[in-house]
Design a binder for these strands. Structure first.
Lengths: 137, 137
DNA sequence: GTTCTTGCAAAATATTTGCAAGACG
DNA sequence: CGTCTTGCAAATATTTTGCAAGAAC
């Protein structure tokens, strides 16, 4: 219930507000990644600026992670409970070029890359583009 | 010389224009990926719309490839001569979070991913984020 | 009561499109 | 000369910022 949402926020030391609870609720109900325009649709009377700031706060506190799926609109998805957002527990994302939905492939970790000498690794964004199971004929 | 540029355009069946030759020249001279704002800086009297259309044409004809490095601005880099832009010859990109430069790691192919059943693969965007060799202390 | 968050407005940035004039082949 | 490209203007989309009023703890 709502208790669950409140707990999740508290666990990450994020101040409780109605807007944040609503946004987090949307994330828990969605199976695919969420973009800002989608949030605007689902949440009445929501201000863009507030939503962007809410997402930034959530990302900073590792409640959600950012996905750059190449669609031109940044999407976000819930982190798994154990996620530290370090390169070790990053997973591959899938972007459907037909329905524009983006999936977290939580079971597929991003392969480790051996960088050239002198380059240091911080994080990895790996997006596979194709047709998803719901769009294939 | 310019002959080289003209040949590259002709090889891809792209009509010769002064603007296209200038844009392609910038690409051949750059070791890192190029964004539209950078093109505007380097080419006097260049119109944004023309540049965007030029990039689109080049991309369509597999002269350059698009890189979504998460910086908010799309970048492009020259394809290798043998590149078909199929998943097989895609390589990993590196984005430096300090200087914002993006490198093609041509020697590092994107690892092949086994997708869940029902998902088809078209292409892959893999960007490693970190500090590049020129920015490390 | 101090600090953080919201809502509104406005700006900054990125990208796309229509159209008439001009260049390419 | 028919088709493609350019330049200009304007529209659309995305994201960020300032600031005063209000809410959280």
């Amino acid at each position: 219930m709502n208790k669950d949402i409140e707990n999740k926020l508290q666990a990450k030391n994020i101040r409780q507000t109605a807007m944040r609870q609503l946004v987090l609720k949307v994330f828990t109900e969605e199976k695919t990644a969420v973009s800002l325009p989608e949030l605007e649709e689902k949440i009445e009377r929501a201000d863009k600026a507030t939503l962007y700031r809410t997402l930034k706060t959530f990302e900073l506190n590792k409640l959600i992670h950012k996905i750059d799926d190449g669609s031109g609109t940044t999407k976000y998805a819930l982190c798994e409970d154990t996620c530290t957002c370090s390169p070790h527990d990053l997973h591959v994302h899938f972007h459907c070029s037909k329905c524009d939905k983006t999936y977290c492939l939580n079971d597929i970790p991003v392969p480790l890359i051996k960088l050239p000498v002198g380059f240091s690794l911080d994080k990895v964004n790996m997006v596979v583009e194709g047709i998803c199971i719901n769009c294939k004929i």
